[in-house]
Amino acid sequence: MSQEARTAVGARTAASRTGQRGDAEDDTRSRSARDPARIRRTGASSGALSHGPVRLLLGLVVPLLILGAWQANAVLGVFSAVQLPSPGAVLAAGAELAARGELWLHIVISTQRVLIGFAIGSVLGLAVGALLGLSRLADALLTPVVGALRAVPSLAWVPLLILWMKIGEDSKVTLILIGAFFPVFTTVFLALRHVDRDLVEAGRAFGLRGMQLLTTVQLPAVVPAVFSGLRLALAQAWLFLVAAELIASSLGLGFLLIDSSNNGRTDRIFLAIILLAVIGKATDALLGLAERWAVRRWT
């Protein structure tokens, strides 16, 4: 799975989302024209499928079906307990690790690595994306280099990182940082290139220049794009966390995976995978809420 492909898909989704929003705006405008009372009601959605609790319940249907099938396997014995331990066994493995105090340690250290790497990588991605997106000179000087660096499969950095930083937090966080950097960089860079020229010109016509133009027109215009970049970056950060921990670590969910694999503990492998899914989804959902707020606020 190439990170370029993921980024490209993300950018396209963001673009199509903006497109749809554009259409909706036109509707709103024509419907609500000259009628202040109606304007407040815009954005009210219809249909049970867009109703929050209903959606939540529907989203639980498939996971529950999978859980049922999984439990049925334990009873029917289609796959052996070594290949596919029962849900109860996975739960018990989790309880055992929790009782020994190890489970929290794995979760906390992994989350901490992701958050630190994601934070630094995103800030760098924003800064470099803004620089290259706004300055023609920086673009001409640096875009080929950044493009070449992006073309390096990120795991290729691992030997170098270990050589430079030894096996420790620094090398892991740096790998995650690299993973988080590129999605943010790419979305910010492209979004700044495509800020509505008419708006920028209007800003200029009213005397805005340099930093003022940047903060008044250009940056607000790319806020929604920045958030889609951040969500992609967070997913990448979790991906790179597991890669980093699989290769060299003594703690963390990735370590739990490789350690359990070496010891034949399929139940713990399942535990680690489920924890990664749940924590990854939870962090993405939080960022998704922030994104929704930002899109409402800045468009």
Binding site: D198, E201, A205, G207, L208, T216, P220, W298, T299
Partner: peptide, 27 residues
Amino acid sequence: IDERCAVAFQEPRLLPWHTLRANVAMG
């Protein structure tokens, strides 16, 4: 560009994230 002139374009070209009041204040 200087402060002797002001332009109104064919499209309103308002900043979508600002209120009408803030958009006028931009001028």
